[in-house]
């Protein structure tokens, strides 16, 4: 039995919000399925609407206010994520993308994510797979194969419940596999980091790098890339 930490990020701004509703339905299924398999799930919800007052500072000077900092800490400790956005003007909402653009590139490495979006029309259905999935690919997170999208008609469609179920099961299995933790333990150094990234936790300083040798009066190693087609070499 494991206690999993699930963080739900919702960018819905109305109250009640259908985006939040979708995120909650997915979260309930994740919690129920995990329980069936003998696990418990601690859920933390990040309602991005509440971060709005801190967003200008975060975007203009990477200055994270107290709520942003709490959200980053929660995501850094998360075993899995549910990320839900409303679609505005054929795109995931600006609040949603702004939030994830402010985060460190390495905060979400390997973490399983359910991607979810709501819209007023089914014509926006591909926003989840074509846009949100690319964002999470960049962050090197692991979106589950089943994306969730709900336009007006989906809320009364029984097939939608099946899809939520499928996405939730995919998320639970990925959490259970321990992939995120394993890849971070085994290969953290293989990803690009900067000092103080990963929500301020990436503080290792490698003193044995080429740049550190240069910093201490050495020279950069001469390039060993030899051109195999160099005509001067006969």
């Amino acid at each position: 039995m494991t206690d999993f930490r699930l963080v739900v990020v919702s960018a819905g701004v109305s109250d009640p919000s259908s985006t939040r509703l979708l995120a909650d339905r997915a979260t309930q299924r994740v919690t129920a399925l995990a329980k069936e398999r003998g696990h418990t799930v601690t859920v933390t919800t990040v309602d991005l609407r509440e971060l709005l007052p801190e967003l200008p500072a975060a975007l203009s000077s990477q200055l994270l206010g107290p709520r942003f900092t709490r959200a980053v800490d929660a995501l850094g400790a998360a075993d899995a994520i549910v990320a839900a956005a409303p679609v505005y003007k054929a795109s995931a909402s600006g609040l949603f993308t702004s939030f994830f653009q402010v985060l460190d590139n390495d905060l979400l490495i390997g973490k399983p994510v359910i991607l979810a979006a709501t819209a007023g029309t089914a014509r926006h259905a591909l926003v989840v797979d074509e846009e949100m999935r690319a964002l999470f690919a960049y962050l090197r997170a692991l979106p589950v194969p089943t994306s969730l999208f709900a336009s007006t008609e989906d809320w009364t469609d029984t097939g939608f419940g099946t899809r939520i179920d499928r996405a939730a099961r995919e998320l639970v299995l990925l959490m259970e596999s321990g992939f995120a933790r394993a890849v971070r333990d085994d290969a953290w150094g293989a990803y690009q980091h900067s000092y103080g990234s990963a929500g301020g936790t990436e503080l290792d300083i490698d003193l044995n790098s080429d740049l550190m040798r240069l910093a201490t009066g050495g020279t950069l190693r001469p390039s060993t890339d030899e051109d195999p087609f160099d005509p001067r070499k006969g």
Binding site: P56, A57, L59, S60, S61, L63
Partner: peptide, 16 residues
């Protein structure tokens, strides 16, 4: 320049 039109002055004072 740089931080104008961003954070409120009071928040900036608190955080920096």
């Amino acid at each position: 320049p740089v931080y104008g039109n961003g954070p409120r002055m009071e928040d900036f004072e608190e955080m920096t």
